[in-house]
C-alpha cells in the first residue's frame, strides 16, 4: 500500500496545487485571477516532474509555461476589452467543452494508464532508476542521426511557422 514518506507528502502537496489551481481557473470570473490560478496549477505540474526525477523538464515547465506562456496570457487578457469583468462562469457552449473534456479523460485513461497498469502492461513495480535518462542523454538523442534528429529539426521548422503565423495574425495590415 501507499507509505506516507516525504515523497508522498510532496505528491499530495503538488496535487493540491495542480488540481486546486485548475479548479480556480474554471471558476474564477476575473480572467486575470484565472491566469494566476493557472500559474499555481502549472507550478504543481513542475513539482510532479521533480518527483519523477526529470528536473530538466521541471525547469522547462517553469521557464516556458510560467515564464512565457502565462505572461503571454496576461498580455492577451489585457488586449481584450472588459474581459476582467466577466459576470458568468458558463456560456452557451459549456456542454461542448464538457464533452471534449470527457473524451480527453477517456483517451488518457485508455491510452496512457492501461498500457502501464492494465492486463499485460509494463510492470508497475519495475525500479524507476532503469528508466531515468540524464539531460546529456537527451541532448545526444536529439541530434543522433538514428534517433530524433528529424523531429528536432522539424520542431524548429514548426516554431518558425508558428512565429510567422503569430505575426501575420497579430499585425495590423492596414498600414
Amino acid at each position: 500500500m501507499i507509505e506516507l514518506g516525504p515523497q508522498s507528502v510532496a505528491f499530495l502537496f503538488f496535487s493540491v496545487f495542480a488540481l486546486g489551481g485548475a479548479l480556480g481557473v474554471v471558476t474564477s470570473r476575473n480572467l486575470m485571477h484565472g491566469a494566476l490560478y493557472l500559474i499555481l496549477s502549472l507550478f504543481g505540474v513542475a513539482g510532479f516532474f521533480v518527483l519523477l526525477s526529470a528536473p530538466f523538464l521541471a525547469a522547462v515547465q517553469v521557464l516556458v509555461y510560467i515564464g512565457a506562456i502565462a505572461i503571454l496570457f496576461i498580455f492577451a487578457v489585457m488586449l481584450t476589452r472588459g474581459m476582467t469583468r466577466l459576470t458568468e462562469t458558463l456560456n452557451r457552449q459549456w456542454w461542448l467543452s464538457a464533452v471534449v473534456s470527457l473524451m480527453l479523460l477517456a483517451v488518457l485513461l485508455v491510452g496512457v494508464i492501461l498500457p502501464v497498469w492494465g492486463e499485460g502492461g509494463t510492470n508497475p513495480n519495475m525500479p524507476s532508476t532503469d528508466l531515468v535518462a540524464t539531460t546529456v542523454d537527451l541532448g545526444v538523442a536529439l541530434v543522433d542521426g538514428d534517433q530524433y534528429v528529424l523531429p528536432f529539426l522539424v520542431s524548429s521548422l514548426l516554431l518558425t511557422a508558428a512565429m510567422i503565423g503569430a505575426i501575420v495574425v497579430a499585425r495590423d495590415d492596414t498600414e
Binding site: 503571454l72 508558428a162 512565429m163
Partner: peptide, 13 residues
C-alpha cells in the same frame, strides 16, 4: 506587447 510576448515565447522554446 503581445507581439513581443509571442516572439519571446517562440525563442524561449
Amino acid at each position: 506587447y503581445y507581439i513581443y510576448g509571442l516572439v519571446f515565447l517562440i525563442f524561449d522554446v
